[in-house]
Design a protein around this nucleic acid. Sequence first.
DNA 1: GTCTATATGTTGATAGAC
DNA 2: GTCTATCAACATATAGAC
Lengths: 220, 220
Amino acid sequence: MKELRKPKAPAAEPDGQTEQRILDAAHAVFLRRGTAGARMQDIAAEAGVNQALLHYYFRSKARLSEAVFRHAAAQLLPTVIHVMASDEELEQKVAHVVTLELDHLSRTPYLPGYIISELTHHPERLRQLLSAVTGMTPEDIRPRVITTLRRQLSAAARAGTMRPIEPEQFMVNLMSLCIFPFAARPMLEALLGMNDRGFEQFIDRRRKELAPFFLRALRP
Amino acid sequence: MKELRKPKAPAAEPDGQTEQRILDAAHAVFLRRGTAGARMQDIAAEAGVNQALLHYYFRSKARLSEAVFRHAAAQLLPTVIHVMASDEELEQKVAHVVTLELDHLSRTPYLPGYIISELTHHPERLRQLLSAVTGMTPEDIRPRVITTLRRQLSAAARAGTMRPIEPEQFMVNLMSLCIFPFAARPMLEALLGMNDRGFEQFIDRRRKELAPFFLRALRP
DNA sequence: GTCTATATGTTGATAGAC
DNA sequence: GTCTATCAACATATAGAC
């Protein structure tokens, strides 16, 4: 009898773990409205369940929002970190990051704005960010990435193939060029008179031009 | 008798227009907490007045938040737009934007995160952004900036002093490199293991290196 | 596990004295 | 213009039936 299911939610998988449905709905609503602006009722509706069920699975809005933030944070940074800390060639790294980031961010429009918004307005989110990130790679993340980059960059500088640049500036420059356009997308669309289609074309051109642009800036 | 003032707020200018005090307080609170997260009570306290007074001067939270957003929006963009639309040399423009933006954003830490957050979570803010921006320069802003840039960029490309690049990519690249580090400041500090002092030093180095970095990327 | 109904707490907004 | 006191609305959270 346990397996008997009555279809309650009009538009949702007949079965499918409810907890996951709630998490997905919460993800959608929190990213679009922000933690402070999101309403539990909206999440319940989006998940096709009742509001009480949200509290049954997650105890409070705070806990639910934390689960969502962790998941989101784990989606934004590990890509860059993983590639940067690898031992690929520098030129490859740049191309690699550009491709992965632009592809990924094209598919998750609200992600950068959400992360920036949360960290700006809720400083306590910082430790959750760190645990979400370091959760994926047990080592202390900072030294690993920076050390690897520093070694490669100074080797290239000694070899005369690249201008000297600090690893921090290198990394922030690359992240800025990849992430900012998505974080500021509404503003840029307005400022440059683009619609969504135009923005996608804009990003398409970026896919080809960004890595060469960045690497030229590093030529000696 | 009208000029007689009783000092109500413990820490605030003895006189000074109350409306302005409220606006300043609202600015501080809204930028730090976001519109949805800000509380009228907190604004009142920050202004050293009672909550009822907020409704006396501004009718509702919505109106107050709109006034703040307009003011903030008018602070972030006009600098770049004004310089970009001027007829300075391109190299000068880049250096000019870098200097102005880094200086300004160093003094208004929450500004970029706030604007991004608002536009991400409240799409209706877009028209307010536009009216705030075009409010400063009556002409339609988009053609003016882009047209000027396009002319200069293709002239430089023809002269062989610069690689061909679309004005939109030029502008977004420059804005990304200037603004993103401030928008993502908490994240970057964590990621790179910097404290506030370290971040300021990081920006200081950027002041010198960013324009040359950017211009090298445009060398033929 | 999932629902309906309700309690509890916050918050924006108003009334009215001074 | 500025305050205190209060209202009305909403949002989160819980109780309890099924």
